[in-house]
Design a binder for these strands. Structure first.
Length: 555
RNA sequence: GUCCCUGUAGUUCAAUGGAUAGAACACCAGCCUUCUAAGCUGGAUAUAUAGGUUCGAUUCCUAUCGGGGAUACCA
């Protein structure tokens, strides 16, 4: 039984809306609270009278009395206190039983849901903006799964756009494997010399024809990029159910465009092919350039069709792309619906990443690439770890710090709500204090260390009555809230709910760790406390799994 | 110009319309012969402005002022 069910029982017995039961900002005021301003007004009675009536109702009800320790009237609030040992036994039983699936639910009813993310461009760096994208996408796949959806991650790689031709234009002059540098260089030179645009156009035409030297160079440079992307995915333990390439769907896209022109959904204008969506107040979307080369929508139309074909029963397709493209996705969805597609396309937007001194962009060439950042963080971690563990081998330190660096970066991307711009400050990120992945992982290591020293084996020997300190009861209540966090993070498409939850959990645990010496404490309560902290670690690992972050055994 | 998002502490972020607006960083002072001190304890500081709705507004509405973004061939 979880808090929602308890709330439902209370609400039903008292004939109130369970939504009106709130969590007081201070847990000392009670587990739930009912503000009775509204009730008083609706019934035209004084708040005093209402609270007393409700209290009488509670006292005379057998079931409520078995759950509730007491109620208190404070001002116009009726505060409810659950019986601590009742709650402790319920929650610990549930956590130890369901383990890494504690708090999961069935709300999604196995609905097939595809998440498209990591829409990255070859011939450019994989930078921290993309990192936010894959971390967000992966977390959403996991969170949807925890809510009973059949959710699948797919990736789409833009390996065929005009940006590839731009990168190749400079590559032929510089022969640098730094494709992003090539790309930025071409963009820079194009600003000064408009003639270069024509040359880039010719390169793109060759690539589209699949022949000649430019096509060969395209294949060669493309594989450099793909290798890099696969390293990022491997490092971050992200596996896609399917990967689509623009180069593989683009021809199908042109066919669809042709059909849409026949159907009058797309039209020719100023030498280009466009969708005129002015009557829907969605402006105009260019589809094919004057020179006949494709813009984004050509491939996206084919991609929508491909996903429908690959995932039987696909109802909802989520596309994780940053918020600047939200108009574009409204336009795309409109075109698909005009063309009669059944699939529902949802844009899952998130804000971009900016640097303390301004915007970051591949075109300007000032984006922080993933690997440079990762190496920097890892190096700082190695220095700190050496200070703390003089007896650890270099190999062990390297392995530990690799894992930590990945976790820290993921955490930085996930701790802010998707609707917020992340201002990424590398100097802050290498401090490793406070609201950081290390705080969580370190706390978890402390629990693991305690369990190891006590030679703990999961034995279900616990007695809720022994968990009688305030901090233990606060922690139990926090565990009880976890199922609601899983639901909220899905409904609001916001993984940061889970991150906040984890941080609060370990703030409380560190407090507990400081206050109560578990191993040297009262031996009578040792079993209960070991089961208790084991439960904390289970929920923590459960939540870390949803975020795609791997725990460590030692730090 | 039009449309969208956003203004909370020195900084970066919290707060399903409810009680005393929370954290983290930075700064100052403490805590390791005691379960991993990347931890803990204590300390000052904030809702852009003006109205409105409400018993009650950081939250909803309007206006003003700031910041960001989108707006036909960038991605």
């Amino acid at each position: 039984m979880c808090l929602q069910e308890i709330k439902k029982i209370i609400a039903q017995k008292l004939d109130i809306d369970s939504q009106s039961l709130i969590y007081p900002q201070n847990h000392a005021w009670g587990d739930f609270s009912l503000p009775i301003f509204k009730l008083a007004k609706e019934n035209n009675l004084s708040p005093d009278l209402i609270t007393k009536k409700l209290q009488d109702k509670i006292l005379s009800d057998k079931e409520l009395s078995s759950i509730l320790l007491k109620t208190e009237i404070v001002g116009a609030y009726l505060n409810f206190f659950l019986k601590p040992d009742y709650l402790a036994n319920k929650i610990l039983t549930d956590v130890l039983k369901y383990k890494d699936k504690y708090g999961w639910n069935n709300l999604g009813q196995k609905k097939v849901t595809v998440f498209e993310f990591s829409n990255v461009n070859t011939h450019k760096d994989f930078h921290i903006g993309h990192l936010r994208n894959i971390c967000f996408g992966e977390a959403m796949v996991n969170i949807f799964k925890a809510n009973g959806f059949c959710s699948y991650p797919v990736s789409y790689i833009n390996d065929f756009g005009i940006h590839t031709a731009k990168a190749i234009w400079s590559y032929k002059r510089l022969y640098s494997k730094d494709l992003n540098k090539c790309y930025a260089e071409t963009v820079k030179q194009m600003n000064d010399n408009p003639k270069i645009a024509e040359e880039v156009s010719l390169i793109m035409a060759d690539i589209e024809k699949h022949q000649g030297k430019n096509y060969y160079l395209w294949k060669k440079t493309r594989s450099i990029s793909l290798k890099e992307f696969n390293e990022v995915y491997k490092k971050n333990n992200i596996k896609f159910k399917k990967t689509y390439f623009e180069s593989q769907v683009i021809n199908k896209g042109f066919k669809i465009v042709k059909k849409l022109i026949d159907d009058n959904i797309l039209v020719k204008s100023q030498g280009a092919i466009i969708a005129d969506l002015e009557i829907y107040q969605l402006g105009v979307l260019p589809i094919i350039r004057q020179d006949g080369t494709a813009l984004y929508p050509v491939a996206d139309l084919a991609l929508a069709e491909a996903k429908e074909l690959n995932f039987k029963g696909l109802r909802d397709s989520y596309i994780v792309v940053d918020i600047r493209q939200s108009l574009y996705f409204k336009q795309l969805a409109k075109i698909l619906s005009l063309a009669g597609y059944q699939q529902k396309i949802n844009h899952l937007p998130y804000e971009f990443i900016t640097l303390p001194d301004g915007m970051m962009s591949s075109r300007l060439g000032n984006a922080i690439s993933y690997f440079s950042l990762y190496e920097k963080i890892k190096d700082c971690l190695i220095i700190e770890t050496k200070k703390r563990h003089e007896n650890w081998s270099d190999k062990k330190i390297e392995k530990n710090c690799q894992s930590l660096a990945v976790a820290i970066l993921k955490f930085e991307m996930l701790k802010v709500s998707p609707a917020k711009i992340i201002t990424f400050d590398i100097n802050e990120a290498v401090k490793f204090d406070g609201f950081n992945a290390l705080y969580i992982l370190y706390g978890l290591v402390r629990i693991k260390s305690l369990l190891k020293k006590a030679k703990f084996k999961n034995n279900n020997k616990f007695n809720g009555k022994f968990l009688d300190t305030k901090i233990e009861q606060d922690l139990i209540f926090h565990l009880a809230k976890y199922p609601e966090v899983i639901i909220r993070s899905q409904q609001q498409y916001d993984q940061s709910e889970i991150v906040k939850y984890l941080f609060e959990l370990f703030q409380m645990f560190n407090d507990y760790y400081q206050q109560v010496k578990i191993l040297s404490g009262d031996p009578k309560v040792l079993d209960t406390r070991l089961n208790f902290i084991y439960s904390l670690s289970l929920v923590a690992i459960n939540a870390l799994n949803l975020l795609g972050i791997k725990p460590l055994n030692e730090i």
